[in-house]
Each structure stands twice: as C-alpha cells, then as structure tokens.
C-alpha cells in the first residue's frame, strides 16, 4: 500500500548513486557483473573489445528503482578488475 508519490519533497533523502566505469580491454565477458548486480542495471552491449568480447554497459534509461546505488559488488565479483564505480551523492 505504501507508494512513493506521497513522499514529502524535503524528506527525499540524499542517496548514493554510482557512475559505472568499464576498462574495456580487461573484460572477458564472464557476465558475473551482469548476473550479480542487485539492481540489474547492467546488460550485455553490442560493443566488442579488441579480443572480441561483448563488454557490459549500464542501461541508459533504467526502469524505476533500477539505478546504480554504488554498492560496488560488481567490483568485487569481477575477476579481471575491469569494472569500477565512482560514487556521487544525488538528490
């Protein structure tokens, strides 16, 4: 029953948001980051790196609530240190 349309403007808290950076050449398309992202903000892109792997990309127009919250789990699971998150505070 709780909907977000009644949240008072002053009560909208500052939450951390992340900008996703991918080091293209390191990716080997293991898909771990895509599978484990709790907010499902990543998907396989059509873009390929020089080894021929499809690298992940952030979904540009995410569905409601599917936004990167800078949890950093993709950084942890990436076996090749190919993804990292820049944290910023958003309204």
């Amino acid at each position: 029953m709780q909907t977000s349309n009644k949240v008072l403007p002053s009560q909208r808290v500052k939450a951390s948001r992340g900008k996703i950076h991918i080091i293209k050449e390191r990716c080997k398309q293991c898909n771990l980051c895509i599978s484990f992202c709790p907010k499902q903000v990543l998907r396989r892109s059509d873009d390929i790196n020089e080894k021929g792997y499809h690298i992940p990309e952030a979904i540009e127009e995410p569905e409601k609530d599917k936004i990167c919250m800078a949890c950093g789990f993709c950084e942890v699971v990436c076996p090749d240190f190919a993804i990292w998150i820049e944290e910023r505070i958003d309204k």
Binding site: Q2, T3, K6
Partner: peptide, 13 residues
C-alpha cells in the same frame, strides 16, 4: 544506499 517509503510515516517520508 537504499531508501524506501517509511511504514511508520505512512509513506510520507
């Protein structure tokens, strides 16, 4: 990092 509507405030915060 996660914010959801508060049950106690009936979704006002």
């Amino acid at each position: 990092p996660v914010a959801v509507p508060s049950e106690f405030d009936e979704g006002l915060s």
